[in-house]
Nucleic acid binder design. Structure first.
Length: 925
RNA sequence: GGGCGAGUAGCUCAGUUGGUUAGAGCGCCUGCCUUACACGCAGGAUGUCGGGGGUUCGAGUCCCUCCUCGCCCACCA
């Protein structure tokens, strides 16, 4: 793209579809999203690096509003820093998503009437690779449509050879440090996905089930003696190896040491005493099923009990290890829930089911397929988390890392303080294979960074562990592995690690964010980032989370094609408080995205005005303009621009902690994107478009020196407005900026996307008075307009207006023409006496607006209005007087507050007198 | 069961350390196609700031309590 001006006029209507794709293409070709290691200060360059790692979406994902929101926020921040002169890097990527992807392929196979076993492991993986290769890049392509300025040359994939190397390195390092071990214990098992899950992957949900009371006969006791246990999962009773009571429970003291007969399985099991039992709950007797309940497993270990497995991997009943023939033949192969029914019925028949009570309890479900998970005894690989958690906890406590919004810090701390070991092995085919080899000949175990083909000790055959690693075991390395780790000499790692902000959804605070922090300290001895920003959730108008399955989703690409990416981005950014949920109506996209679309159109039309009025020939630089060349309106808008730049910077920054750690006063500041967007919108719409632009209308066409001043100021102001808005609305601002008249003698870069972020103008000193004085002019205009509206004076009729002002007569005299033009009136400034039959208004400086209505209007209306005002003023004045007579107030309130209240009292008193006089003159009495 | 958050205009939400007459967008009402813009312009209405109590000269803001929603965590079978 060239910087020469487009001489053709802008089309009347902005068509995002026509422009967005082309502009994005030019950005890519210019390479402005590519970060250069050598320019990073850490590598001897002259720019601060600013790095954001994109939360990698699943390779199989399709873009939804959640991605839209999250990636827009990231892009706004990255674009802001890029313009601010940082070496900005946004690393994109995807996640191979073990369970999720495998499920999709399995579903495809099922549709073909096949299972993964039919294919075998190798063919299954080949097929999955083919699928991922074909469809995997789709979501990243979609992100380009919303303007994501990521460095696509660095696109990462958790299952790529490079990142896989990091996964192995991490595993081996942790193993060598004794932080990875194989454990035999009860874990969460999804019978549908046929794999183990981590604690985090087994989600709780409150459900009403039943608490079944079952009587177990006491062996050798009195005829008919029983103990009654309570359970929510009767089918697990076949795996019972004991019943337990509390050691101090007098009810059952005599029973401990005796045996009971387990119904159906017909095995004798002991009664034991264990502190774990709560005498208050249920019957005070607990059945102990070590292989199918984590607590019972602990009890079982303490009492050295056998641990029979009575369920197969798919959740059907089976006699597994140590089960003997506990499961009767008619239950074998029966699904666990069906088996529950059957067992309950059988117990009813034998009168051993003594009660069924509804019971609220938390049931865990698989986070991928929602199947109820089954606690199951098995061998898994675990990461010992406590040593890893320590530095991660310290980092947030001491301000090395901050989490926004603040409240999530407590959640984070709570999780880390109660951290439990992480089950990282999955019984899947799709994922990084556990890098452990076994030699059966000498029964040794080899953990290796490279492939092992023969036993190191005996040269015998080896076989690799069948399991793969949890997907999160690769994504927790993302901030380091995408930058080249474990390659210690990686230029990218040196230039860009630690990164800066991490922007993601709170759902993965534990899955991903906390673990990345742990990995950062474990492998780099440094935090991965200094700021975690957790966005809200996108919901529909009933506050239900948007999801494809519920059919209440919005496809961001629909929004892009209807209203443009900028409309989507602005709406999302402006509508979202920090960490707050965003409500959008999937049934009314037009209304939902109106704020963004309307604003984009507004910008477009300002651009059209500029092009047709200011033209395209170079303008003077504002820096050359002297104060006396500028009109009051010019000085006002330049002042407002300065204020807006300050507001924008205050809302967004600081970009990084000034002294390495967040100091208390800066810790929760910045990243208030909606405030930033709102400040920019107010400036463009309320100030530039509604006021300043209107004041230039007579000037530009007038020719001469002032015409040049007006062209210059308006161009400058719009230029800077486009810069401020570019991070939020990159496409339309770039389009308009490319056509802006270039200031004389000012170099400018090729793209707005890399144009310097606005700095406050040096002219700022005199601005405060200019702002106050022009505000009075605006007040006068509004007052006249209100009178016109209140009295229904026809829009076409030019009204005669008199302004009386003691303090600012010169101001109004000077601007009488402007005030008249903006309010459609002929304005005279002087000492006209209040005429009967005229409407009045008082400005904040005490100046009076008088509009003779020439009998057009019923005066009683004006009088009623004035009397109402008077009454209101009286009551306000009354409470203010009381306050000022209150000695506590005078003595305890800060002096400046008291002073301003006094001044207010004086002002109001004057106003009251004027008003009363007016009422008397106009309405008599 | 533990912890956290929210309740402000019809809707979605701002309201920094307590201090002018509580704001914005959308919606609504009135009038306007005023040659950049009807996706617009001008004007307007609407709030016992969830209820109650307290601290204070002063509370939407701080404290207590209650009510209503939401979220996170949790091995009571």
């Amino acid at each position: 793209m060239t910087t020469t001006h487009e001489l053709s006029a802008l089309p009347a209507q902005y068509d995002p579809r026509e422009t967005e794709r082309a502009i994005y293409e030019r950005w890519i070709q210019a390479g402005i999203f590519s970060a250069d290691e050598k320019r990073s200060r850490r590598n001897g360059g002259d720019r601060d690096p600013f790095v954001v790692i994109m939360p990698p979406p699943n390779v199989t994902a399709v873009l939804h509003m959640g991605h839209g929101l999250n990636n827009t926020v990231q892009d706004v921040i990255v674009r802001w820093r890029r313009m601010a002169g940082d070496e900005a890097l946004w690393v994109p990527g995807t996640d191979h998503a073990g369970i999720a992807t495998q499920n999709i392929i399995e579903r495809q196979l099922a549709a073909e009437g096949k299972t993964k076993a039919d294919l075998g492991r190798e063919a299954f993986i080949e097929r999955t690779v083919a699928f991922v290769t074909e469809t995997g890049g789709e979501i990243l392509r979609q992100l380009r449509a919303i303007g994501a300025s990521a460095d696509w040359n660095r696109t990462a994939y958790t299952f790529s050879p490079e990142l896989s190397r990091g996964v192995r390195e991490a595993f081996v390092q942790l193993y060598e440090r004794g932080l990875i071990y194989r454990g035999h214990r009860v874990i969460h098992w999804c019978p549908r996905c046929m794999t183990s899950l981590s604690d985090e992957e087994a989600e709780h949900s409150e459900e009403t089930g039943n608490l079944y009371h079952i009587a177990y006969p006491v062996v050798g006791g009195k005829e008919g003696a029983t103990v009654t246990v309570a359970t929510t999962r009767p089918e697990t009773m076949l795996g019972d190896v004991a019943v337990a009571v509390h050691p101090d429970d007098d009810r059952y003291k005599g029973l401990v040491g005796k045996s009971v007969l387990l119904p159906i399985a017909n095995v004798e099991i002991p009664v034991i005493a264990d502190e774990y039992v709560d005498p208050q709950f249920g019957t005070g007797v607990v059945k102990i099923t070590p292989a199918h309940d984590p607590n019972d497993f602990e009890v079982g270990k303490r009492h050295k009990l056998p641990m029979p497995v009575i369920m197969a991997a798919d959740g059907t009943m089976a006699n597994g290890a140590d089960a003997g023939s506990r499961v009767p033949s008619d239950l074998i192969g029966i699904d666990r829930f069906e088996a529950r029914e059957r067992i309950v019925r059988a117990l009813e028949k034998t009168k051993q089911l003594t009660a069924v009570k509804p019971h609220q309890h938390a049931v865990r479900h698989c986070y991928r397929c929602d199947t109820v998970v089954e606690p199951r005894l098995s061998d898994q690989w675990f990461v010992k988390m406590e040593p890893l958690a320590k530095p991660a906890l310290k980092a947030v406590r001491d301000g090395t890392i901050r989490i926004l919004p603040e409240r999530w810090e407590a959640v984070y701390v709570n999780w880390l303080e109660n951290i439990r070991d992480w089950n990282i092995s999955r019984q899947l085919w799709w994922g990084h294979r556990v890098p452990v080899w076994y030699c059966d000949a000498c029964s040794c175990e080899i953990v290796s960074r490279t492939e092992v083909s023969a036993c190191e000790k005996c040269g015998g055959q080896v076989r690799q562990d069948d399991d793969v690693l949890d997907t999160w075991f690769s994504s927790w390395l993302f901030p380091i592995s995408t930058l080249g780790w474990p390659d210690k000499d990686s230029a990218a790692l040196a230039a860009f690690y630690p990164t800066d902000d991490l922007i993601t959804a709170p759902e993965i605070l534990f899955f991903w964010v906390a673990r990345m922090i742990m990995a950062g300290y474990a492998f780099m001895d440094a935090p991965p980032f200094h700021t975690v920003y957790l966005t809200g959730t996108v919901r529909d108008m009933k506050h239900v989370k948007m999801s494809k399955s519920l059919g209440n989703g919005i496809d961001p690409l629909d929004v892009v094609s209807s209203y443009g990416a900028d409309a989507l981005r602005y709406t999302v950014v402006a509508g979202m408080g920090m960490g707050a949920d965003l409500m959008l109506d999937p049934n009314d996209l037009e209304r939902s995205f109106a704020p963004g679309r309307n604003f984009a159109t507004k910008l477009w039309n300002i651009g059209r005005f500029l092009l047709s009025n200011v033209g395209t020939s170079p303008v003077r630089s504002v820096d050359e303009l002297s104060d006396d060349e500028l009109t009051l309106a010019d000085r006002w808008i330049l002042g407002r621009l300065n204020a807006t730049i300050f507001e924008a910077d205050a809302a967004l920054g600081p970009a990084r902690p000034e002294k390495g750690k967040w100091r208390p006063e800066e810790r929760y500041s910045g990243l208030r994107l909606s405030e930033f967007a709102e400040a920019a919108r107010r400036f463009v719409w309320d100030d530039v478009a509604d006021w300043h632009l209107e004041t230039t209308k007579g000037r530009i066409s007038g020719g001469g020196d002032d015409s040049e001043v007006a062209r210059s100021v308006l161009t400058h102001v719009f230029d800077y407005a486009l810069r401020l808005l570019h991070p939020v609305m990159p496409f339309i601002t770039e389009t308009l900026w490319q056509r802006l008249p270039v200031p004389v003698a000012v170099d400018r870069c090729e793209f707005l996307a890399i144009a310097p972020w606005p700095l406050p103008h040096p002219r700022s000193r005199a601005e405060e008075t200019a702002i106050a004085r022009f505000d009075l002019v605006r007040e006068a205009v509004s007052a006249v307009r209100r009178i016109r509206s209140d009295y229904s004076v026809a829009p076409g009729k030019v009204m005669d207006v008199a302004i009386q002002s003691r303090a600012n007569g010169d101001l109004f005299t000077e601007h009488a023409g402007l005030i008249g033009r903006l309010s459609r009136a002929t304005v005279n400034v002087g000492s006209t006496t209040a005429a009967a039959g005229a409407a009045h208004a008082v400005l904040s400086d005490g100046s009076e607006i008088i509009v003779p209505l020439g009998g057009l209007v019923d005066l009683s209306k004006e009088c009623a209005k004035l009397r109402g005002e008077l009454t209101q003023l009286d009551s306000q004045l009354d409470s203010l007087s009381k306050r000022l007579q209150n000695e506590s107030f005078i003595s305890r309130a800060p002096a400046n507050v008291v002073e301003s209240e006094r001044k207010k009292h004086d002002d109001w008193t004057t106003r009251r007198a004027q008003l009363a006089e007016k009422v008397k003159a106009l309405c008599g009495g």
